[in-house]
Design a binder for these strands. Structure first.
Lengths: 328, 328
DNA sequence: TTATGCTGTGCATCCGGATGCATACCGTTG
DNA sequence: CAACGGTATGCATCCGGATGCACAGCATAA
């Protein structure tokens, strides 16, 4: 399999009768080249169709301009939106996005060596988790890493996430204010930090408001089907409101409650979700939920990649409850 | 910014007192190395934590193991599923996925030089389009390219797509068989090949069945909001059935028809979509639609990348109508 | 005028593997 | 035993840019 020989910096150099290093320096904004020569080089490059080879550059600089995004479990639409926005923002910031799938709830430690092989500059972990040991090792190698919408407790790894605890606590308070006394919680997968924080916040809020948790149901994944399934168990506890750990669970739950169980929302039971995905605003659902400011989160993530310090300070981005029709 | 020095093949060679080329060959399954030495090398590599550097390899082989996926407009959930499955399949096939966003309906010609810089082996175009000139040039450079769910007319570029024409024609026939005589079509964006084919097939089917098209509405994008908006114009033509160019349009349309217009589906009007995205099966919608066999499409795409010939033969994968509740 | 400093350029080498070619070594076969 | 064929190995070089170092050229300061 032969491949067309590309135009190289040496071709340009030969063409102009200068050295290859001068051509190389011309493409480095900080390179020392006389303005006149730089112009000649750029012109020749344009004419001959020369573009610096990113692979060769990467080999000698040990940097690639590539950011790896670890993402899995795209049955949760929230992550489709995240991926879309992250990729757009990285593009603007001049990075390429290498997509890495990881089974949700599993760690990515095993895949990191593969990323090293590609001189990936930075890593955004938006699903799965990463052991603190590996994360530290990665940083020591002066590569960037950001955890998106998740945290790990035992290491100093930069992460961007919202105030899941506070948001869930606010939900509990809001439910109490509106007279709900018997509430149920449909939990996300146990190993996710989002579920831990939301559950803790919700319980704290209930405690403070004097409401009682009459039911708690576990789910195996953040998915529509699991929400549907969990709603059956949740409604059996006769709650007057159900808080789902995220929107896709809530949507599945609503379809069980309204369709299969024949209940009316919010007359018979109120429903609240978390994330504010696009579908939560669809007229068929109009789900009351907690909005994660995705654009802001993405912005902070990119910013964190570009400087270095950026550790925990971007956690607990404030969130906001979006009142729609599923709550009385 | 210093980076830890990685273990190189020369380190292994020095450690074992052999030549660097032998180490290199040991990692080539077809390389000539005695079994004994190969074992020693692998063992030493394991012990010292050596992994061949993909960048260096790519520099000399001019191949990278990276496949670029061009994708945009992720407000259509169909493409989230596509991306998820493509990435999974590429992973299995031993490729990495580089994600490229492209504004829907625009061509990617301008971005290709950037991909060349990365020695990307293959290109999957799953949104946007590509000029035939550029596509040919890319292939001449012995790189692979596959168009996913789209075709271009004037060049011999491999593409994988379903029988959009036949599927839409079948919908027309089915509607006629069930007694619908006044039907409306909500079109996708004009420049998309999927819309052109579906529209042509639908019209052909109507023609043959003797039904009449009482309304036709254009949309600017495949999105929920556009479907919602278009439904208003479509219902004004008093159809007894509306065929939407894809599911996300149909879902938006249903919410207009049932919510805003207060109609009952399918009593007052039948609705049919195209794609069979996950949400079409949600109890709130139970949309009758045309299923694109996504797994099969992905499989064929990967297969096409792996061999070379693979041109038009994988078009017109047969599709199947999924009968749910939105049709009388 | 000589010493000092800065800019622009080229040379040589490095980044880490892949690979064509020459050679040394082994076992066959006549 | 000589000639032959195949396998295993090493050497040298290449892939395409980046960069430390030396030096030339010119300007400014002493």
């Amino acid at each position: 399999m032969k491949r067309a020989l590309p135009v190289t910096s040496r071709d340009i150099a030969r063409f102009l009768g200068v050295s290859q290093s001068m051509v190389s320096r011309a493409f480095d904004p900080a390179g020392k080249v006389s303005p006149a020569n730089r112009a000649r080089i750029m012109e020749a490059a344009e004419k001959l169709g020369y573009r610096p080879n990113a692979i060769a550059r990467s080999l000698s600089t040990r940097r690639s301009g590539i950011v790896a995004i670890v993402m899995g479990g795209m049955e949760n639409p929230f992550y489709s939106e995240v991926l879309d926005k992250l990729a757009a923002a990285l593009d603007l910031a001049g990075f390429r996005s290498l997509l890495f799938r990881a089974p949700p709830g599993q760690d990515v430690d095993g895949q990191l060596p593969a990323l090293r092989q590609y001189n990936v500059d930075a890593l955004i972990v938006a699903s799965a988790s990463i052991s603190s040991r590996i994360a530290e090792e990665w940083r020591r190698d002066s590569r960037r890493i950001v955890l998106f919408n998740r945290t790990i407790s035992d290491a100093d790894v930069p992460s961007v996430s919202c105030d899941n605890f506070g948001g869930a606590r606010d939900v509990a308070n809001m439910l109490a204010d509106r007279g709900h006394r018997r509430v149920a919680y449909v939990a996300g997968p146990r190993q996710t930090s989002t579920n831990r924080e939301r559950e803790a916040g919700f319980l704290a809020g209930l405690m403070g408001a004097g409401s009682s948790l009459v039911g708690r149901v576990d789910t195996a994944s953040y998915s529509f089907a699991e929400g549907f399934r969990a709603a059956e168990a949740a409604i059996a506890t006769k709650p007057d409101a159900i808080f789902f750990a995220n929107d896709i669970l809530a949507l599945g739950g609503m379809d069980y409650l309204r369709g299969t169980a024949g209940l009316s929302i919010p007359r018979d039971v109120s429903v609240v979700g978390f994330d504010d995905i696009a579908m939560a605003a669809w007229p068929s659902y109009l789900l009351t939920t907690v909005r994660q400011p995705l654009d802001r989160m993405v912005e902070l993530t990119i910013a964190s990649l570009e400087r270095d310090s950026a550790t925990k300070e971007m956690n607990n981005i404030p969130i906001e409850i979006v009142l729609r029709n599923t709550i009385s």
